[in-house]
Design a protein around this nucleic acid. Sequence first.
DNA 1: GCCCTCCCTCATGTATCCAATCCTAAGAGG
DNA 2: CCTCTTAGGATTGGATACATGAGGGAGGGC
Lengths: 237, 237
Amino acid sequence: MAGQDRFPAQDAEILSNPLRRTEGEEATAILRERVLNGDLAPGERLHQVPLALSLGVSRTPLREALVNLAQEGLLEYEANRGYTVRRFGMEDIQQAYAVRARLEGFACWLCATQGLPEAAAARLRACLEAGDRILAAGTLTPEGLPPYRAMNVEFHETLLACAENRFVRSFVHQTQNVPMASDRLFVWEDHAIIRRSHDDHHRILRAILAGQGERAEALMREHVTFAWEVLRDLLRR
Amino acid sequence: MAGQDRFPAQDAEILSNPLRRTEGEEATAILRERVLNGDLAPGERLHQVPLALSLGVSRTPLREALVNLAQEGLLEYEANRGYTVRRFGMEDIQQAYAVRARLEGFACWLCATQGLPEAAAARLRACLEAGDRILAAGTLTPEGLPPYRAMNVEFHETLLACAENRFVRSFVHQTQNVPMASDRLFVWEDHAIIRRSHDDHHRILRAILAGQGERAEALMREHVTFAWEVLRDLLRR
DNA sequence: GCCCTCCCTCATGTATCCAATCCTAAGAGG
DNA sequence: CCTCTTAGGATTGGATACATGAGGGAGGGC
């Protein structure tokens, strides 16, 4: 995902020229990854000159990146003292998931209430079928993980897009802009859990298509909440 | 969400040096106001040199401001083509209120569930009493509006702070970062409406103190939803 | 007459330079 | 021995100079 932003489906990114990116945008993407991956230690001060050198750009585009990431909440800024990597604790991740559960639930409610465009319904059905195929073996092989993850992302992103509320969409993305809190990173080796999770997807789409807003919302909220519990138990070890 | 949150009550703003602000921060604040006030026409292209001149700064801090506002969603950016003022429609405001109703409702649920610190409860009670006094006359005089508005802001901000979820707080602020969508701008001349709204506040606090999470959440959601309806009717005229 | 191309101008993106601020540490005084 | 003061270097903030890509108009070809 070299030239791609973290959220490939972001409207602006794909509609406008994805090829011509400024160094500032490039630096933003790279630094964001570094922070989310933990390459930069929490609390670490970011000195501009060495950082710019390591990125092969001058201080100007670097500063643009720092401003961006500070506003995304990944960095902290103090005037005349520079930027530091934000310290994230379990509470941050917990808070992110708590909000995300509500927001994605709301998105499902919106989808159920407004109705899905046929094209979107088809895409979602395709996601479910793809998941079915991957899980058909009875166990999720290591080779099956990347496509499953991609399917998972597309399912959630499609719902967010169909909710037609740019704030919900943006906010959900922001909750994923926290180390460890991205659903792109899940490492559920437990087949039973992933099976159940995929079953949630089936029920969610069914509820939405049936116009059952409250049910779809409750299902999605639980879906995300449970993902948090799994992640929490995993992080505790 | 990080660096600039346009709400003076933010702890970071007042605790850290409020005096020493960088020109970039200054320019961000000024430009943000200009966009929210409509001083800059929607869709208008922002040329950097004249803008910098009008702000009395050079392009460097100006660009910092543009980056900030673009990520706040107030401006749109296209590489090598510059920034334009985002066009906001009724749907944007409606979406903002819809999300805000949910988020502030969630914040109330959190407050009720976690319990309020005594200091916060005292502040909220003081808000209610202040509102009672202002409305005691039986009609809201023009001189009564600013203090009522300040009280209203403090009430909501206090609840958001007590929810102890930085995402909720940040997201609510972001939904207010939309022209016309700030609760600082309400112009309810109708005394009955404002009376009812203040009664909501009373009930919300009572529900929270009684640990009635669902009730507090429902009350706040309705409180915000109704504010939207009033605003919508007002904008239609 | 219409369209295509080339070139010129202007705006943006990037680099560098200068100024202001902060941190450190050494030294003097108590 | 501790503390306060004060330079010095280092780092960030802001201004300006340079490079690159976008847009528009004039001119020529079809």
